[in-house]
Design a binder for these strands. Structure first.
Lengths: 251, 251
DNA sequence: AATTTCTATTTGTATGAGTATATCGGAGAG
DNA sequence: CTCTCCGATATACTCATACAAATAGAAATT
C-alpha cells in the first residue's frame, strides 16, 4: 500500500462500455481501434505498463484484453519485441465478436461486399442441404420466424431479428457445424442490409415472398427449388446493396 | 490437501506444450479436453483457485487461458455462476488455432465430413473468383506451389505443405477477405486427407493433373473451367475420404 | 564480416488483498 | 401454495507489486 486509489469514475466516463467487464471493454476498445485503422498492421503497441496506465486499468486487465485480441488473430506479443498488430490476413474476420465490433461502427464497405459474396456462395448451398436434412422442429422455427417477420415488418428491430433467425435456422438445418459456424457472418450481413435500407428509407421490394418460397421448398424437401429460391432472394438483396454501395457520399 | 502428486517437473511433462507460454499451454490443454468431450457443454469448471492449483500454475496464467477460450466461444464465466462450457453451436470451430487443436489429435469424423462439405461449397466458387481476379503474382505463387508438389510428392511433408499453399493461394486470389479467412479451415481439410491417405498407404490417384487443370484455367481466366476443375478435384478427394470414413475399425 | 556474449527491455508468471456481481434460499406478500 | 423481493454468500473480477524468463540489439570477440 502507500499508493492512493485512482478516481474510478474517470474510467467509466472515458470508456463507457456498458456493463462489460473491464478486460472486455478494453478488448473492444482496442479491437475497434484496430478495425478502424487507428493501429495498422505492423504497428507496435506501447508497453503494458504505459498502456494500462493511460487507460486507467490494471496491467492484469490490460493483459487479459490483449490475450483476447491475440486469440482472434489481431495481435502478437513476445518479450522484448513488444505487442504488434498482425497483417489483416491473419485476423479472424468471421469471429462473431469481431463482426459485432465492426458493425457497431461504420463497417468497411469493401468488407461488406466480401461478406455478401460469401453469402452468395454459402446460402444457396445451405438451403439445398437444409431441404435435404431439416427436421420438423427446425422447419417450425423457420415458420415462426417468417410469421414474426410478417407481423412486425422489416422496419422494426423485432422483424429484423426474425429475419436473422430465419437465415440462422436454415444454416442450422444443414446439420453441418462448419456451415453453421458461419451463421454470425451471414447474420451480420443480413442485419446490415435491412438496418441500412431502413435508415435510408428505401424499401424497394418486399422480401417476404422470396423468403416464403425458400421456406416452402425446404418444407417439401425440394432441394433444387430451395437453392434457386435462395439465389433469387440473394439476387434482390445484393441489387439493393449495390445501389447503396455505388451511391456517392458518406455512408 | 492430501492427494497431490506433484513435482515441479510434472507440469513440463504433463503438458509438454513445446515452447508455448504457460497460458497458451493451459488454453490448449483445456481446449483440447473440451474438444475431446472431457468437458461437455453445460459442464461447470472448478473454481479458479482450485483449477490453477491443480494445474500448478498461477491464477493469472489460468485466467488468461480461460480468456482465450472465452474469446473462441468455448466458455463463459460470470461471478458467482462460475465458468462453464458453452453449447457447441457457439464454438468458433473455424478458428485456426482451434482447428490445430482438433487435428493434433484424432479429429471427430463427423466434423471432418462437415469440413469437406464446406470445401465443396467454398472452393469451386473461390476458383471462379480467382480466375476472374487473380494477379500475376498470385498466379506465380500457385505455379511455385505446384512445382514443389510435383518435386516432393504428396508423401512428404514438403509436398503436403505445397498442396496447402496452392489452395491458400486460390483463396487469396479471390480478393475477398471473408473467403480468405476460411483458408485455415480448407487447409486443415487438405492436410488431413493427404496425411491420412499417406498413413494408410493408399494413394489411389495422382491429384496433380487435377491441380494443374485448375491452375491453367485460372491462368487463362477461364472462370467456368476453374470452377469445374475444382469440382472435379474435390470429387476425387471426397471419394477417397469416403472410403476412409466408411472403413470399419478405429481411425 | 561473421560469431558469440552480454545486457537491458519487455512480456510473462506469481501472489495476496480487496471489489463487484449474480445466484440461491428464505422471508414476506398475495 | 405461488410469487416477489431481498439479502447472504460464493465466485469471478480487479488491482498492486514483485520477480522471472526471454529475446532483440548492442558490444565484444574471432
Amino acid at each position: 500500500m502507500g499508493s492512493e486509489r485512482k478516481d474510478v469514475t474517470e474510467r467509466k466516463f472515458a470508456t463507457d462500455e456498458g456493463s462489460l467487464r473491464i478486460h472486455q471493454a478494453i478488448a473492444r476498445q482496442l479491437g475497434t481501434a484496430i478495425l478502424m485503422g487507428v493501429h495498422k498492421p505492423g504497428d507496435l503497441f506501447e508497453g503494458e505498463i504505459e498502456a494500462s496506465e493511460r487507460l486507467h486499468v490494471s496491467r492484469t486487465a490490460y493483459r487479459e484484453a490483449v490475450r483476447i485480441l491475440i486469440a482472434k488473430g489481431m495481435l502478437e506479443s513476445r518479450p522484448k519485441a513488444g505487442t504488434r498488430v498482425l497483417p489483416r490476413s491473419r485476423w479472424n474476420v468471421l469471429d462473431p465478436e469481431m463482426l459485432a465490433w465492426m458493425f457497431a461502427g461504420e463497417p468497411d464497405r469493401d468488407f461488406i461486399r466480401d461478406l455478401f459474396e460469401l453469402r452468395g456462395v454459402i446460402e444457396p448451398a445451405a438451403a439445398e442441404f437444409a431441404a435435404r436434412r431439416r427436421t420438423d422442429e427446425q422447419l417450425a422455427i423457420m415458420a415462426r420466424a417468417l410469421d414474426e417477420m410478417e407481423k412486425h415488418g422489416l422496419s422494426t428491430p423485432e422483424g429484423r431479428a426474425a429475419d436473422q433467425r430465419f437465415h440462422h435456422a436454415v444454416l442450422a438445418a444443414t446439420h453441418n457445424d462448419a456451415l453453421a459456424a458461419l451463421a454470425s457472418s451471414v447474420g451480420a450481413a443480413v442485419s446490415w442490409t435491412t438496418t441500412f435500407k431502413h435508415r435510408k428509407k428505401l424499401l424497394p421490394r418486399d422480401p417476404l415472398p422470396d423468403h416464403k418460397a425458400v421456406y416452402r421448398a425446404i418444407a417439401t424437401r425440394d432441394t433444387a427449388a430451395a437453392r434457386n429460391g435462395m439465389v433469387e432472394l440473394l439476387r434482390l438483396a445484393m441489387a439493393d446493396m449495390d445501389v447503396v454501395m455505388t451511391e456517392p457520399g458518406k455512408l
